[in-house]
Amino acid sequence: MSRHHVTTTINGDNVEFLCDTEQSLLDCIRNELHMTGTKEGCGTGDCGACSIMLDGRLVCSCLALGVEAEGKEIMTIEGMAQGDELHPLQENFIKFAALQCGICTPGVLIAARALLEKNPDPTETEVRFWLAGNLCRCTGYDKIIRAVMATAAQLRATA
């Protein structure tokens, strides 16, 4: 059987790729579309490094098939900055030193952005539980939480 031809939208661009049924969406984004900003930490949905937005919903791209992306809208870390403008979360992750090795960072940023869109004024506890699916082994989470809380406050102030 031939491979599936998938037409989808990534960060606003129309893209097409070919894949086998068993290829995860993560595999397709990285290895078929060569967009390597989305990371694989486990392949089983336990680390969140592969977080993306799929039709506006935060998901692990390792837990969806590439073929399921047909006709859908995908947003990845590569689509988070707008031109020269970093997203305020990206700015604050640098400012607050919310990353060390940086491998979890794309997933954390995508997840945090989804949180702030849904809940502009989260408590520390809400941020922690929302991000519980994003493992970070370097930071102990402290500076990540501070960066997300500070961004929320900043966005509320400018809204």
Binding site: G45, G48, L58, L115, W130, G133
Partner: peptide, 9 residues
């Protein structure tokens, strides 16, 4: 069940 991400599916 699972993380926020898993909840999406």
């Amino acid at each position: 069940i699972g993380s926020t991400q898993v909840q999406g599916r």
